[in-house]
Amino acid sequence: MKNLIQDTLSRIKTEHIAPEPKWKFLLRKAGAWVLVGAVVLLGAAAIAAAYYLISQLDWDLYRFTRRSPFAYVLPMIPYFWLILLGAFILAAFFGVRRTESGYRFSGLWVVVLVVVGIALAGFLMARAGFGSRLDAMMRGVPFYERSIETQEKQWMQPEEGFLAGTVRSASENAIGLDDLDGEQWNVKVDEKTLVRPAADVSTGQMIKIIGTKQSARDFSAAEIRPWMGHGMAGAGSGQDNGCGAGKSGSCGNRGNMMRGR
C-alpha cells in the first residue's frame, strides 16, 4: 500500500501532472448552465410562435360549420411548436440534471423551474413580437407550412363558407374582392349582412367574410370581419351598438361598410 502512494507521487512529479486550473472547471459549469439557458430560450421561442399562430386564428368559426367545437379546434392546434416545446422542456430538464449540482434538486422542482422559466421568457418574446417573426422565417420550410393551421388557410375555404382578401371595389350591394390567391370574387351584401365594427370595407382593405359560395366566383356574405382580429374593437366609441360575444346578429350592419369610401 505504501508503494502505491509513493508510486503515485513520483508519477505526479516525473510526468509533471498538475491540478487543472480552476477557471476550466468554472467554464465547464457555466457552459452547462448556458446550454440550459439556450434550450429554455428555444422553448420560449416555440411558445411565442405557438401563441402567435393561436392568436391569429378565429376560434369561433365552428359555429358556422357542421363540426363540433372539439373536431374543429383539434386541427388548429400548433402541434409543430408544441412538440418542439415538449422536446425543449425535456432537454432543459435533463440539461439541469446534468449540471454539477442538478441531481440534488427534486424532479418536480426542476420541472417547475424549467416550465416557469420557459413560460416567462415565452411571454416576453411573444410580447416583443418574436413569434410572428419566427413564424415568418419558418414559412419557407415546406413541412412547416403543411403542419400548421394559418389564418390564410382558415379563411381560404370558400366551400366551407370562409373567404378572405383585399377589397377591390365596394358598393351598396356588392363587394369586388381579390382573394388571397389573387382570384377575383363578387361578394353579395344585403341588409342582413353583419359588418363587424372594426371592419373597414373600403378599397385596398383586407377583410374576412363568412357566408355561402353561390357559384364559381360568387359569394354571399353573412358576416364581414377585419383581417386582424374579430373586429369587435372600435365597437365602443361611446355608442352601444349591441356588439358582444354571441351577439353577432345584432352587431352593426352593412351601413358600416360605407365608411372610408
Binding site: L4, I12, P19, E20, P21, K24, F25
Partner: peptide, 19 residues
C-alpha cells in the same frame, strides 16, 4: 492497485473542481 492509481491521479488533476 493500477486502477486506484488512475483514480488518485484523476483526483489530483481535479482538485480545483472539489466543491
Amino acid at each position: 492497485q493500477d486502477l486506484l492509481q488512475e483514480v488518485f491521479i484523476k483526483i489530483y488533476q481535479n482538485l480545483n473542481a472539489y466543491d
